[in-house]
Computed example of a mutant assay.
Amino acid sequence: MTTTFFLVRHAAHGLLDRVLVGRTPGVGLSAQGRRQAERVALRLTGERLTAVHVSPRERARETAGPIAAASGAPVVLSLDLDEIDFGTWTGRSFDELAGDPAWRAWNERRAEAQPPGGESMRSVQARIVRLLDGLARLHPEGRIAVVSHGDVIRAALLHYLGLPLDAYDRFEIGPAGVSILVVGSWGAKILSLNETLALDETLAPDECVAPDQRVTA
């Protein structure tokens, strides 16, 4: 018996790729993000979801809402799916952070570095893997949507792929991207990575975003 997880990164918000939002309250989806969320819901409509587990951040909950509505599956808030606690970096622009040696260390040595006053990537990985493994034991035939954040999902996938945390940037987890993970008593495997069929490639002028700055929240 296996549990299938649909790992969904939240859809786009207006500060994407410009500000390290982290756990800043009140950051909801942009108009583009709301369209993305609806398309993710459509993508998952036929997947017979049994539950939708979601980070407490507003942008994640707004992404999960259409998925739950389309599937009829119950929504469960989980602190283990929360965004990384970026400590004193929270809310700062990527331009501001670019000159910080600790920021460079975070991007170059993810396995050992830690945001000042924040949370290590190893801690993030431990909490999401604990949640997924626990859900797999409780729901051995479940089909569960998990709506979280880019680096949180990366941390989980690195664990199940047997890759080190420093390999976090070897694959992309884009806004509204869907990755499918299957977990059983025999182990785990990745069925798909960062499906982006839900992405709306047409941006309104006020929704244009800057190039990737390696870490997005």
Rank of each mutant, 00 (worst) to 15 (best):
N194Y: 03
A176S: 15
H139G: 06
D212E: 09
A41Y: 02
R23P: 14
V209R: 15
V147E: 03
D166C: 04
R122G: 15
Q114L: 13
R18S: 15
G26M: 05
L29N: 14
L197I: 05
F94L: 13
R23H: 13
T45V: 09
H13E: 11
M121V: 07
G14E: 10
A11F: 01
G177P: 00
L132H: 00
R130Q: 13
F86S: 10
L49A: 11
R170C: 01
S179Y: 01
D17A: 15
R34Y: 05
L158V: 08
L157T: 06
M1W: 02
I84A: 11
R35W: 07
G26Y: 05
G65C: 09
F86K: 04
R48S: 15
E112S: 14
R109V: 08
T90I: 08
S78Q: 05
R23V: 14
G26I: 08
F171W: 00
G134R: 00
A111V: 08
G187R: 03
H159S: 06
P205N: 03
F171D: 08
L7C: 10
R43W: 09
T202Y: 05
L16K: 13
S30T: 08
G28R: 00
L20I: 11
G46R: 00
W89A: 13
F86N: 12
F5I: 10
E195S: 00
L77V: 15
V147D: 01
A51G: 10
L165M: 06
N107D: 10
P74L: 12
R109D: 11
T3H: 00
L157R: 02
S78D: 15
E108V: 02
